[in-house]
Computed example of a mutant assay.
Amino acid sequence: MAHQTGANMPSTGHIVTVVGARPNLMKLAPLVRAFKGQASMIRHSIVHSGQHSDPAMDSALFEALNIPAPAWHLGACTWEGRANRLAGFIDGLSEAFSDLSPDWVVSIGDVDTALAAALAAKMRSIPLAHIEAGARSGNLAMPEEQNRRLIDAVADLYFAVDQRDRDNLVREGISPDVVHVVGSLMADCALQKIEQARTRGTARALGLQLQGYLTLTLHRPENVDSAETLSGLLEAIASGAGDLPILFPVHPRTRPTLELVLSLRPGWAGQLIFREPAGYLDMLDLISGSRVVVTDSGGLQEECGVLACPCVVVRDHVERPEMLELPSQYKGSTNPEQLARAIRKAMTQPAESRPHLQPFAALDGRAAERIAGIFRTLFEGR
């Protein structure tokens, strides 16, 4: 049951940003800060769908990222199946929008919450802005690709990470006048929090030496839903890593298959070090200190980009192909042989040659500032 936790206050322009999955929060944090800097023109409220429904983890992330409490929280997601989940989100978000009366709804990324926010906004004739608009993997079998294309089909304002995403939108018939290249909010957050993260000593607490370990994350269905597939990937990663310890924070989706793999092969773990998923600051500290990161997470790929940490991407289709043009990024594929080769190649990058930060326009840390400035101009001109 939806419940309200905040109240309306008069202002020049009211923006409601909808979040639900944890990666949304890392992208929300810089926006909160930027909108606060435009408080004379912008009132900002947060609505949480509850898509990721661990209250303790949510609370810890909100505190670590200095995000205020949502004006509305739909409660923990209890709907089974994607269709039921989307329907539940749309219904709850529609109620929230009716109460909050926003001038604009902001949808972030490509999770189910983002699509539900877009549809609920359009059903109530509220203008919709999409952050990370125009990203395309070309694989319509992916729920994320379905979501991002559907959101972009109904949005009114588009914030693209880079020129490639803008070009995708224009090719699809979107007017260039409503598409703005702003950069990556994930990079904004990493840049704002990296110095704080590096004080945590997360790797040392686990007995790991700086740049003396590999960090691994896997959560995508094509990689973790089959014991045979996951087993093959882990063997390839261990082969590529040589004697390097492999730190593996295990995603909840991955855990059941991993347990099956380990039960079928008792005693097989090699140099893998399993642990619970790390909090944002701890994870930022871990990847910053890693020799190599191996991941199928787009967000982690961007964080590695801004921190110049060698990153091997365990995916066959990516929505950020430009990231693979960075000297620290390697296309790993889901093919075990190709993955092992990519890891060995990443390991050859001398640790001492890594720059502190990667020079890349989309990762300059000013995306939220640009977004807030565009909204301010909109409100001033109405």
Rank of each mutant, 00 (worst) to 15 (best):
P176H: 09
D177K: 11
V178Q: 15
V179A: 05
V182M: 00
V182W: 08
G183T: 06
S184C: 08
S184E: 07
M186S: 14
A187T: 00
D188Y: 00
C189Y: 07
Q192G: 13
Q192K: 15
I194V: 11
I194F: 08
E195H: 15
E195F: 10
Q196I: 10
Q196A: 13
A197Q: 06
R198K: 10
T199L: 14
T199M: 15
R200T: 01
G201F: 07
T202K: 02
T202I: 02
A203N: 07
A203R: 08
R204V: 12
A205H: 13
A205T: 13
G207H: 10
Q209E: 15
L210K: 13
L210N: 14
G212W: 09
G212T: 09
Y213P: 00
L214T: 04
T215K: 05
T217E: 06
T217R: 07
L218K: 02
L218E: 01
R220K: 11
N223K: 09
N223G: 04
V224P: 04
D225C: 12
D225R: 14
D225P: 08
D225F: 13
S226H: 02
S226F: 01
S226E: 06
A227W: 04
E228L: 15
T229K: 11
L230Q: 06
L230K: 04
G232R: 12
G232W: 05
G232F: 04
L233A: 05
L234K: 03
L234V: 03
A236S: 00
A238N: 03
S239K: 09
G240S: 13
G240E: 02
A241F: 03
A241L: 07
A241I: 10
G242T: 05
G242A: 09
D243I: 12
D243M: 13
L244W: 01
L244P: 05
P245H: 04
I246N: 05
I246K: 00
L247Y: 10
L247G: 04
F248Q: 05
F248L: 08
F248R: 07
P249M: 05
